[in-house]
Design a protein around this nucleic acid. Structure first.
Lengths: 215, 215
DNA sequence: TGTACATCAGTGAACGCGCGTTCACTGATGTAC
DNA sequence: TGTACATCAGTGAACGCGCGTTCACTGATGTAC
């Protein structure tokens, strides 16, 4: 950073200085505005104001960019869940807050969310960074869910998820499904309440069918 | 059908006779084998052994074909759920059977399932047939879930879902989430059980956290 | 402090490709008479 | 029963397009001396 030449007075410097991050940001924008189908490496470069071959300096082709976007998404989701959880002490409240953060994240970043979990990236296991980010997100959920069993939460899951308690998966399934149905507009909050309403309210309302005392 | 000229002895008759269905079937095959990204109208025509412009006789472009595939998917899902439900009398058993049918369908038709719920078809409301098929699927779930409230199930939802009980949405969320996590390989049955295992067993196992007596 | 030079980050032309869709057409079908 | 003809279902050439990726390149940077 010390030696960066990018100056604010300079309109378009030869060296961008932060192209990798800029490309990811452009990709996210296109993703959210136009959908995965319309996302092209050339379009991303164009939006970043850079030649169409510049991205190859930072990613191994289009698939590399997609993986980086998804990884950043998982990191953001993990952070959101952690922040939600730390605002409460009671395990039930913690878990509820995590679920709400999850829903909020999905709604605010629906195209990225879809990319993270969809089939657009065929084999996630070939992208170590992506795996690590995904594990981080799952760990954020599982560590709280583990409290219900009284077992200690394993602090790493190695992409194996061994030892993660059933509730983690059950809670994840529920919240993941609600998130998906909401972003796919299969459940519209206003349809359930009969008026305009908040998806988070929905999360709480449906959540009472979930009984974590049963383990 | 009476006047169809397609004869079995004839290798490639000029008139196909059943091209619409054949195109949908080809689309499903490509979808499951190669993913949405690789699905092209030309490829579908090719696989059906027909010129690349023939599909335009039966669908209004690529988007029309996609909608037809999704609609057929929803009909199949609705049928599977209904068949699952009729094998039991107890409402809880009925609901559990519906969930299991849902998971089975998703796993057996994962690419179609993704298409049904994903963003590949941008505005489903412009396709009346698709809406109708989706409503049919939701109705199959909601009519059973409604038993828990003691209220009568509305027999149509008009794409509005008004009057559908909360449990229907909660159960749907749970089962939809588990289905998605399974087809996206985020939860691998063998990871949870520590050995090879059956996704349906998972459905039951996690399902016990769901308490439908609370309404 | 000044300069030669290796390294790094970006350029721009070019490749070959498959796509969605249109158009004027032709072969097959079924019906009115 | 035979035939003219409207209708239907498919053909094949052609359009313009944007894409991913490669290649040899050039401008900028930072360091060894």
């Amino acid at each position: 950073m010390l030696t960066m030449s990018t100056s604010k007075k300079d309109g378009a410097p030869y060296h961008h200085g932060n192209l990798r991050e800029a490309l990811i940001a452009s990709a996210v924008e296109i993703l959210e505005e136009e959908g995965v189908t319309k996302l092209s490496l050339r379009g991303v470069a164009r939006r970043s104001g850079v030649s169409q071959t510049a991205p190859y300096r930072h990613f191994k082709g289009k698939s590399g960019l997609l993986a980086a976007v998804a990884a950043q998404g998982f990191r953001g989701l993990a952070k959101a869940m952690r922040e939600g959880a730390t605002q409460h002490d009671d395990p039930s409240d913690k878990l509820a807050a995590i679920g709400q953060s999850y829903i909020r994240f999905a709604l605010a970043n629906s195209a990225v969310f879809r990319l993270m979990f969809g089939a657009e990236i065929p084999d996630k296991s070939t992208e170590p960074d992506l795996c690590e980010a995904a594990d981080e997100a799952f760990a954020a959920l599982a560590s709280t869910a583990a409290i219900f069993t009284g077992h200690e939460a394993p602090d790493r899951f190695n992409g194996e998820q061994d030892g993660a308690p059933d509730q983690a998966f059950a809670a994840w399934s529920y919240v993941h499904g609600l998130a998906n149905l909401l972003i796919d507009r299969q459940i519209k909050p206003e349809m359930v309440f009969g008026g305009e309403s908040d998806p988070i309210e929905l999360t709480k309302r449906f959540g009472r069918f979930f009984d974590f005392s049963r383990f």
